[in-house]
Simulated scan of single mutants.
Amino acid sequence: MPRRVSPWGLAAILAAATLPAAAQQKPTTPSDTAFAAQTCNVCHGSQSYVSPTMPPIHGGDAATLHQALLDFKTDKRPSTIMGRIARGYSDEQLKALADYLSKN
């Protein structure tokens, strides 16, 4: 019997597939960062909508978010999808993303 993927699972898979492509644009520009941050909304919600199942990331502390992203990237923080997503970005891009999300 085939397994069914929930809508949230499908959204997470699609988000993970698009993020590394956005990360290949170097150097990180504000528009690249804004584009990448929009894909975060698929799982985490936006400023106007908070996901009931994922932690909010908009308006948080930039240093804390940056460290969390680095920890996901290096597998210091266990994850299902975030480690794969974070590995698609350079440390500089993760910092820019954390800074953007903290202000938006």
Score class of each variant (00 low, 15 high):
2 P>W: 04
3 R>I: 01
6 S>L: 12
7 P>Q: 05
7 P>D: 13
11 A>N: 11
13 I>V: 12
15 A>H: 00
19 L>Y: 00
20 P>F: 02
21 A>P: 01
21 A>S: 12
22 A>E: 08
22 A>M: 12
23 A>R: 04
24 Q>W: 06
27 P>F: 07
28 T>D: 15
31 S>E: 15
33 T>Y: 01
33 T>N: 11
34 A>N: 07
34 A>L: 08
36 A>P: 06
36 A>S: 15
40 C>A: 04
42 V>A: 15
42 V>E: 06
43 C>A: 06
44 H>M: 06
44 H>L: 03
44 H>I: 05
45 G>V: 08
48 S>M: 08
49 Y>P: 04
51 S>M: 03
52 P>A: 08
52 P>Y: 02
53 T>E: 12
55 P>N: 03
57 I>H: 05
57 I>V: 15
58 H>V: 05
60 G>Y: 13
61 D>R: 00
62 A>W: 06
63 A>M: 07
63 A>V: 10
64 T>A: 09
65 L>K: 00
65 L>C: 00
66 H>W: 09
66 H>Y: 15
66 H>N: 09
67 Q>K: 14
67 Q>R: 13
68 A>C: 08
69 L>F: 12
70 L>E: 08
73 K>R: 15
73 K>V: 05
73 K>M: 13
76 K>D: 07
77 R>D: 08
77 R>P: 04
77 R>N: 05
78 P>A: 00
79 S>W: 10
83 G>Y: 11
84 R>L: 11
84 R>I: 07
84 R>Q: 09
85 I>E: 03
85 I>K: 01
86 A>G: 02
86 A>S: 14
91 D>H: 09
92 E>L: 07
93 Q>H: 10
93 Q>S: 11
94 L>R: 04
95 K>V: 00
96 A>D: 15
97 L>T: 14
97 L>D: 07
98 A>N: 05
98 A>G: 08
100 Y>C: 07
101 L>C: 03
102 S>N: 04
102 S>I: 00
103 K>D: 04
103 K>E: 10
104 N>M: 00
